[in-house]
Design a protein around this nucleic acid. Structure first.
Lengths: 246, 246
DNA sequence: CGTCCCAATTGATCTGGGTCAAGGTTAGTC
DNA sequence: GACTAACCTTGACCCAGATCAATTGGGACG
């Protein structure tokens, strides 16, 4: 499909503009979408939106990694979503943000102003359908994650998280079976702990244990090699079908 | 709004037929929906659908309680959804069931054959929009539950579950602040444990502790009185805004 | 080339909830 | 009205992971 009016090559990974729309849109709809589209960048550590704040846009991650977190009054925090490129943020039909959204690396977002986006959605059924598909995928991912949080051991949790990151990292998709998989963790130990319902000390210990047992290789703190993906998956406790996306 | 063609008074709580459709449907659409609608009943304990099986329908719970569960090879199980009346089951656009669906009480479901339902959805945008809204609500609930699973103590988990059941039970909606809230638990201790990522012994101990501390009254094993809802909510760790629906 | 800072590691100890085991309750059923 | 089978409660003990406390490593910057 052709992609007219693209202002950034990175926008290839924007699901609304390209996965949802281009495949089924007519030219008028594309022009209309481009009219309400804009890009924003956030630095690593910057909060994109605070829980409860008014959220005037919806959009998707073009590059970088962001997280959705919930916090209790006493400071306990749980990550409830991991936003990788192509993931959608925001909630058509509701104004307040339900979670904190934080950039954990530098992030580029492709945003649509909410009001006109909602109006477009009313008129173009395939956009609502595409959003429904994406939301159902997210729901599956959240439910998969409930199993991880509720029933897995610390070691299994870490292995699950690493599997998920490998699975989602587009640059790793080309890796054949049996080949080394190499990637950089986009999360600190503390963020990993918040995702998994652990403490950062336990994350660190289990990372060391997986390294000691040759399930992974660690260079520096973030650079990881997985010599045997099957091994990692079996450490995660899900044999075969693997974990979903956060 | 008027409700023509209703074949059962229970179907009042069916969200597709009534919440999604009636409010915005024209007469033709209603007739078409009724043409592909049918009712099924399941006994307590019966499995509605096994994970991985072909699922030829979508639908919603009219009465009773069902659960969505995931199981690991070694038998560890995690409940990932609690289906109360009006909740939707099934996944338009995907054929395999992703979870086990089990009736925990006698259940009446209002079902739509999947293929014609999907075709209807293509033609009538407001049905897809309504499904999107419901799915986003479920996603919020799942994420709320991730906080419970990942960061709350056993006592807080139990209090959270009780809060959610109170919140969802339509018959309790009329209870004013300060009044006793009385209800029957629709779940066994084991099902509660599977929802909360605990063992049934821990559930039992914490129920006893909440009873001892006068947060709840227990008659028999299932009949519960909450003398002070604020107290229960604060035991759940969510002050004010409370938990969502599973 | 030091030194400052923050992320990560590692160790020692503690504890909430798991595990294993022994009753107790209640609702059917004959 | 005793028998059975679920379901639930309670107790004793144990261990995975939390907590508290140093220490290490590595990149940025003067």
């Amino acid at each position: 499909m052709s992609t007219p009016n693209i202002t950034s090559v990175n926008c290839e990974s924007c699901p609304i503009r390209h996965r949802a729309v281009c495949a089924r849109c007519n030219a008028d709809e594309l022009v209309e979408l481009d009219a309400i589209k804009y890009y924003r960048t956030y630095e690593a550590g910057q909060t994109v939106i605070w829980s409860g704040d008014l959220m005037g846009f919806v959009g998707s991650v073009v590059s970088g990694v962001a997280t959705l977190t919930q916090t209790m009054e006493d400071g306990r925090t749980q990550m409830v979503g991991l936003l990788l490129p192509s993931d959608f943020v925001g909630r058509p039909g509701r104004d307040g943000a339900a979670y904190n959204v934080v950039a954990t690396t530098d992030v580029v977002m492709c945003c649509f102003r909410k009001k006109p986006f909602e109006e477009l959605m009313e008129r173009t059924p395939h956009v609502a359908q595409r959003l429904l598909e994406m939301t159902l995928d997210e729901l599956d991912a959240a439910r998969e994650w409930m199993l991880v949080l509720g029933r897995k051991t610390a070691r299994e949790k870490i292995a699950s998280l690493l599997s998920i990151i490998v699975r989602r990292d587009a640059s790793l998709a080309s890796n054949g079976i049996g080949k080394n998989i190499v990637f950089d963790l986009p999360l600190t130990r503390e963020a990993m702990a918040d995702y998994l319902g652990l403490t950062l000390e336990t994350v660190s210990r289990q990372m060391s244990a997986l390294k000691r047992d040759d399930v992974i290789k660690l260079e520096g703190k973030r650079h990881i090699t997985v010599p045997n993906m099957e091994r990692l998956l079996s450490e995660a406790g899900d044999d075969g079908d693997g974990g979903f996306i956060g």
